[in-house]
């Protein structure tokens, strides 16, 4: 009887832990403890920034890895969210800035990002492969030039400054530690949602559409509608990253969403690997570290070359990115293990 009483409440919790998995628990512990050992610079410029760009790449990974649709416009949807924060919240630029509270502005920003993503998705799902890339590249380029030339709504070249993360219940999210944890929560939510939903009915339909859209129609699915819904969810994640990005920078300008940034997101996703939602975050850490420290190694003029060479090496040795390298390594270790037992 006593044993029953102690065991019963423990079982669901133990099941949950087992479902989350040891790897995830170790990673969570490390990420939670990271502020204890790191400086403010490493906390925000490396930690927070990697998590934000990891989310952007995750939003691309959702479309490309599961849906087979490569988009270069994810940074543009982040930009939609960022400009929404600037226009509807407070800014220092003396233009617009309605001063709405953060809890109103943030959902609005996500909604605008997701719907604009769904709209661009609806336009581009009629195409496939390289043509989707071209259309979304055109969208990203057009968005950049549009916000740079439009002063009434987007304040053109300088954009908006003075965009501050809120103070909630006395916690100032502009401070490094709270800001890092806010990014960590947002990234964890996005990651867990994608990981869970990949095996959901909608997740399965998306992967099936990637594998064979014709058969999907022949078993009763509206392929176009499913793709557009996927773009909506991808826009939601990109929008969340966009809000965090303007709070990180304290500003948004056309430079935030230029073509270089759009390609950066793609590079992060490819370097990390598209097969698992952890890939974009691994890629983001690598790229952010390189972008921060390559200048010290090879000088200010050559740091992009170093990133380029690293990108080429990854793509050359492992089409599935760093995740693929990890997979190869595990396979080799398993083989060695088998051999040593024989």
């Amino acid at each position: 009887m006593n044993a029953d009483v102690t065991q019963n409440p423990a079982t669901p919790a133990r099941n949950l832990l087992a479902r989350i998995g040891t790897g995830h628990l170790v990673l969570a512990a490390l990420l939670l403890a990271y502020p204890l050992v790191s400086s403010d610079f490493f906390l925000t410029q490396i930690g927070g920034y990697s998590l934000i760009f990891g989310m952007l790449a995750l939003s691309l990974s959702l479309l490309a890895g599961y849906g087979g649709m490569v988009s270069l416009a994810q940074i543009s949807f982040a930009g939609v969210a960022g400009y929404t924060v600037a226009i509807f919240g407070e800014n220092n630029s003396n233009i617009l800035g309605f001063g709405w509270p953060w809890w109103l502005v943030m959902p609005l920003a996500l909604f605008f990002a997701a719907t604009s993503s769904a709209l661009i998705g609806w336009v581009s799902v009629r195409t496939e492969g390289i043509y989707t890339i071209m259309i979304t590249l055109a969208v990203a380029t057009a968005a950049f030039y549009f916000v740079r030339q439009n002063y009434t709504l987007f304040n053109g070249f300088p954009g908006y400054t003075g965009l501050r993360a809120p103070i909630v219940f006395g916690v100032n999210f502009r401070d490094p530690v709270p800001f890092y944890y806010m990014c960590l929560v947002a990234a964890t939510l996005s990651y867990a949602a994608v990981l869970y939903a990949a095996r959901s009915t909608f997740g399965l339909t998306l992967q099936a559409i990637r594998d064979n859209p014709r058969r999907m129609r022949a078993i009763g699915f509206d392929v176009t509608a499913h793709k557009v819904v996927a773009w909506f969810y991808a826009g939601l994640i990109a929008g969340l990253a966009g809000v965090l990005l303007v709070w990180f920078n304290g500003r948004i300008s056309p430079g935030t969403i230029n073509v270089a940034a759009a390609i950066n997101v793609l590079i992060i996703a490819v370097i990390g690997g598209l097969k698992h939602p952890i890939g974009p975050f691994v890629g983001a850490v690598m790229v952010v570290l390189m972008q921060t420290f390559a200048i010290d190694i090879v000088g200010a003029e050559r740091f992009n070359t170093l990133i380029g060479v690293f990108f080429l090496a990854i793509v050359f040795f492992s089409p599935d990115g760093i995740l693929g390298l990890w997979g190869q390594l595990r396979q080799r270790l398993a083989q060695e293990d088998l051999r040593s037992r024989q």
Partner: peptide, 24 residues
């Protein structure tokens, strides 16, 4: 659907004509 399991292939064929096709 080469990337999905046999059961998931058939499951989708059943789900395609049923409700909750967008269920998360």
């Amino acid at each position: 659907f080469g990337g999905l399991s046999v059961l998931d292939n058939i499951y989708l064929a059943c789900r395609g004509v049923s409700r909750k096709r967008y269920s998360l």
